[in-house]
Design a protein around this nucleic acid. Structure first.
Lengths: 135, 135
DNA sequence: AATATTTACTTTGATAATCAAACAACATAA
DNA sequence: TTATGTTGTTTGATTATCAAAGTAAATATT
């Protein structure tokens, strides 16, 4: 169990470094790409929900979204039921960036699982499913 | 392969959130704890190496280490062979903080693997070993 | 040996990210 | 209706960060 813990930490650490270098190449900041990633994979959402997912305050997010809107990656829309809220989502340009980032991730996944056979991959998937559920 | 990719991203995302909330409780910043973590798991090292591992410039690190030294978590020592370099390492207080953080990680590992049997854990370990090698 | 180049670290000045607190608009509960 | 809670923005302060310039030491070149 101790060794598994270390392997997880190492995996997380290397994934962080990888993400950092991939993001650097895009020219956008880590926070910006992270925002794009969340909006891309979960769809449009309210400021509050997005802030919670990103682990920042709504005050910080307001400023960030403003920048992303100016960059043409994100757009704001009125919330149907709640006039206090706005829905932020990706523009087509933002969606494109998200797709590009996703392809990078996909390539990484292919690369790092290069030496795993199909049986191992099946077990690995099941493990991740079960682990993700326990957070 | 596509589903595995998503599982990895979700895992990484949840681990990030967990780390963020755990760090918040310590009263130190994420960057500070990350520095402690690297020094704790790899032992004392030079500024340059530490900066590279953390993905920041040495200029940024100089400032950060200064703070950590003032907080009593980190100490500087002369490098034996290279008089340009200094070795930064944890004080006993820093080591204690690292141990505490490690226990948190260990507990998390136990929690999330709660529903995995021994065989699955063995496969999981092997998968992580192989994946970590490919980064 | 003398000089030039590279490397390790620090300092400085500027920018970006972040938070907490105060605020305004709206929703919900009493 | 009134009181309370929620959502998002603004503001002022702090912190993290970088790039560039500077210093000192190591290494390479001549």
């Amino acid at each position: 169990m101790h060794s598994l813990n270390n392997l997880i930490i190492e995996f997380y650490d290397k994934l962080s470094s990888w993400e950092q270098s991939v993001v650097k190449d895009t020219g956008y900041s880590l926070a910006q790409v992270h925002t794009i990633e969340v909006l891309g994979s979960h769809g449009p959402m309210r400021m509050k929900e997005l802030a919670d997912r990103l682990g920042i305050t709504t005050g910080t997010l307001t400023v960030q979204i403003e920048k992303l809107v100016n960059l043409g990656l994100v757009s704001r829309a009125a919330h149907e039921d709640d006039r206090r809220s706005i829905l932020v989502g990706l523009t087509s340009e933002g969606t494109q960036l998200h797709a590009h980032h996703n392809r990078m991730h996909m390539q990484l996944t292919k690369d790092i699982t290069r030496h795993l056979d199909n049986d191992a991959i099946d077990v690995l998937k099941t493990c991740f499913e079960k682990m993700n559920r326990e957070f």
